[in-house]
Computed example of a mutant assay.
Amino acid sequence: MSLSVYEDLIYFEELNRADRDEITVVIYESSDAVRGLDPDTEVEDANMRRKVALHHTQADIKGSRRYRLAAVGLGLLCVLLLTAITVLWIQLNHLTAERDQLQTSYSNLAAERHQLQTSYTNLTAERHQLQTSYTNLTAERDQLQTSYTNLTAERDQLQTSYTNLTAERDQLQAERDGLQRRLSELGWVYFNSSLYYVSNEKKNWTESRDDCRERGSDLVIINSREEQDFINTLRKGQRVWTGLSDGETEGVWKWVDGSELITGFWYPGEPNSYGDEDCGLYGYGSDPVKNWADYPCNNHFFWICEKRI
């Protein structure tokens, strides 16, 4: 814009100079034409030249003023242009900084968007997994609820059965106690699923067994240490016949049910088969455990019968 104004000022200055030259030429030509007609032309010509020179000087002064004014205007325009350029440069710097800041913000937002997208994807997968877990847990809960209902029904049924069995047990216990009382009155004692009877008289081994058979039982068979101890308390210090004998084969001891002796509680040195000793006697010696002996079957002793229930 400043270059165009400057060119216009130069154009106007050249135009004024051309006008002045043309006026001067015209004046000189007019003076030359008049000089040949009027004798006093020299004086007038000199006056005319002074006027022209004065006019030319004044025109130069005016042109110089116009040039200075144009230069001042041009300077002012340059200052304004420089100011405008400076302002535009500052604004450009500000805009560049804002652009960089916006670019950084855009990059950060893009990264955050990507991160949010990743988080959204992860949350979607977790939601799907939780939904699956929820479905599985719901199915398990329903299954457990069904199992709980079934178990509750079974518990109630078992409780009813338990109540019934308890009542039956109490009834059987009462019947057993009554039966034991009646058996006790008849001389029978209950122990470990068997009934035991102790005689109040003495007989030989064969007669003792016959008496047991008449009572629906047989001579006692001792199969354990617990039963050995029980018989020891039952005999009350008396020697008693048992269901043990080697009458069939000497030295082969068998019980009255035909089973062979496995565990015996013989007194030391027994059985010795001294003479005709083929029957088993309980209570020989003072040892409460090892107190069996072989004795002649025709001797008379108390006896114990056993009846398995």
Results as ranks from 00 to 15, higher is better:
D142F: 03
T138R: 04
Y148D: 08
A139S: 13
T138G: 01
Q143E: 13
Y134C: 03
T138Y: 01
A153H: 03
S147F: 09
L151M: 09
Q145G: 03
D142R: 04
H128L: 11
N150C: 03
N150P: 02
Q157Y: 04
T149C: 01
Y148W: 06
S147T: 12
T132M: 05
T135N: 13
N136L: 09
A153P: 07
Q145N: 08
L137P: 00
T135K: 06
Q129L: 09
T132F: 08
L144Q: 07
Y148V: 15
R155M: 14
D142Q: 13
Q157C: 10
H128P: 01
S147I: 08
R141E: 15
S147N: 09
A139F: 10
R141G: 12
S133W: 12
E154S: 12
R141I: 13
N150G: 10
Y148T: 14
Y148C: 07
T138P: 03
D156K: 15
Y134K: 06
Y134F: 04
T146L: 09
E140H: 06
T149K: 03
E140C: 03
T135V: 03
R155A: 14
L137C: 01
E140L: 09
Y134D: 15
Y134M: 07
Y148I: 14
T146H: 05
Q143K: 12
T132V: 05
L144K: 10
Q129K: 11
L151G: 06
R155Y: 05
Y148F: 06
T132D: 05
R155F: 06
E140T: 05
Q145P: 02
Q129G: 00
Q143R: 14
S133L: 11
N136Y: 09
L137W: 07
A139D: 03
Q131H: 13
T152S: 13
L137I: 10
E140W: 03
T146A: 11
R155I: 11
Q131W: 05
Q157L: 14
T135M: 03
L151R: 00
Q143L: 11
E154V: 08
Q145M: 04
L137T: 00
T152N: 14
A139G: 06
L144E: 00
Q129F: 01
E140S: 10
H128C: 01
Q157P: 03
Q131N: 15
S133Q: 10
T138I: 01
L144T: 03
T138A: 08
L144N: 11
Q143I: 04
T149W: 00
T146P: 02
L137R: 00
H128M: 10
R155Q: 15
L144S: 08
L137D: 00
S133G: 02
L151P: 01
T135W: 00
Q143A: 12
Q129W: 00
L151C: 02
S133E: 12
T149N: 01
N150V: 10
H128A: 15
Q143F: 02
R141K: 12
T135C: 06
Q129V: 01
L130F: 10
L151D: 06
R141F: 12
T146K: 09
L151H: 04
R141W: 14
A139C: 02
L137N: 04
Q145D: 04
D156S: 14
D156I: 10
E154K: 09
L130T: 05
Y148P: 05
H128F: 13
Q129S: 04
T135P: 02
T146M: 09
N136K: 07
T149P: 00
T146W: 04
R155N: 14
N136R: 05
T138D: 15
